[in-house]
C-alpha cells in the first residue's frame, strides 16, 4: 500500500478537480460540498475511479457522494488505507 497522508490525498483531489472542472487557479475550499464546485454524480464517480487508479485500491462508486467534500473524502480514504482492498 502506498504511504500517503490525508493532506496529500486532499491536495491530489483539489488538483484533479481544478483540472477536470476547469476551476480558477488558486486555493479550493476543502470543506466546500462537491455540488458547489460543479461536480455532478457522474463526475463524482469519475473522481473515485481516478483515485482508485492513483492509489491502486478499490472504492465503492458512491464514495464521493457519501463523503461529499475534499476533506471528508481524504479523511475516509486515509483512515482506511490499510484496510481497503488492493486492486488486483
Amino acid at each position: 500500500m502506498p504511504h500517503v497522508t490525508q493532506p496529500e490525498i486532499a491536495a491530489w483531489c483539489a488538483d484533479y478537480l481544478r483540472r477536470t472542472l476547469k476551476l480558477p487557479d488558486g486555493p479550493i475550499d476543502v470543506n466546500a460540498e462537491f455540488p458547489s464546485l460543479g461536480l455532478d454524480s457522474a463526475e463524482s464517480v469519475f473522481l473515485v475511479s481516478a483515485i482508485e487508479d492513483w492509489l491502486g485500491l478499490e472504492l465503492a462508486s458512491d464514495t464521493a457522494l457519501e463523503h461529499p467534500t475534499i476533506a471528508q473524502l481524504a479523511n475516509f480514504i486515509a483512515d482506511r488505507l490499510d484496510t481497503l482492498t488492493l486492486r488486483t
Binding site: L23, G26, P27, D29, N31, A32
Partner: peptide
C-alpha cells in the same frame, strides 16, 4: 473577486 467555493481554502 474570489469565487465562493475558493474562499477560506487552505
Amino acid at each position: 473577486a474570489v469565487p465562493l467555493a475558493a474562499r477560506s481554502g487552505n
